[in-house]
Every structure is written in structure tokens, then in C-alpha cells.
Amino acid sequence: MTLAHEMAFASPHITAYAVEATEHPDLARKYRVTGVPKTIVDNTIEILGALPEDAFIEQALFSQAE
């Protein structure tokens, strides 16, 4: 989780929520969380598992054509 939080701290445009899945089953269902960690970016992009820092940043922020 710390990586997403670091990203929020570094960028004034990023907000990062660590969601405890068992306490928020409605959110876990909504985003079809079957394993953790799972990251959802802007309700659309899904990232499964833990990735290296550079790969995570690329997938989370730059994988969609602007």
C-alpha cells in the first residue's frame, strides 16, 4: 500500500485509499476483488498483485491513451 500512498503524497492530483476489503465487502464486490493487493484506478483500470514501482506507476497513470 505504501507505494500508492507515496504517489498521493508526491502528486497534488492523486488521492490514494487503502481499503480493508473484509470490512468493506460492498466495495470489494463492486470491484470484483478476489485476491489482494488489487488496485483500481479511477474506477476503471485494474492492477492485480504488487508490481515494481516504475511498472505500477506506468500502468496506473499512463496506460490509457489520453
Binding site: M7, A10, H13, T15, Y17, E20, V36, E53
Partner: peptide, 27 residues
């Protein structure tokens, strides 16, 4: 101090739109 690499920080500086991350974890 941030643990992010200098390259990551530069990449993040180019983000100009609001982005929301939800990271699901278990206890």
C-alpha cells in the same frame, strides 16, 4: 523522505488530472 525514485517523482510531476487509487488489502 519519500522512498520514490527520482525517475518516479518526475513521472508523477507530469500528472495534471485528478486520479483516485483504491488499493484493496486484507488484515
Amino acid at each position: 523522505e519519500s522512498q520514490l525514485s527520482e525517475a518516479s517523482r518526475q513521472r508523477l510531476a507530469s500528472v495534471q488530472r485528478p486520479v483516485t487509487l483504491h488499493v484493496f488489502t486484507t488484515p
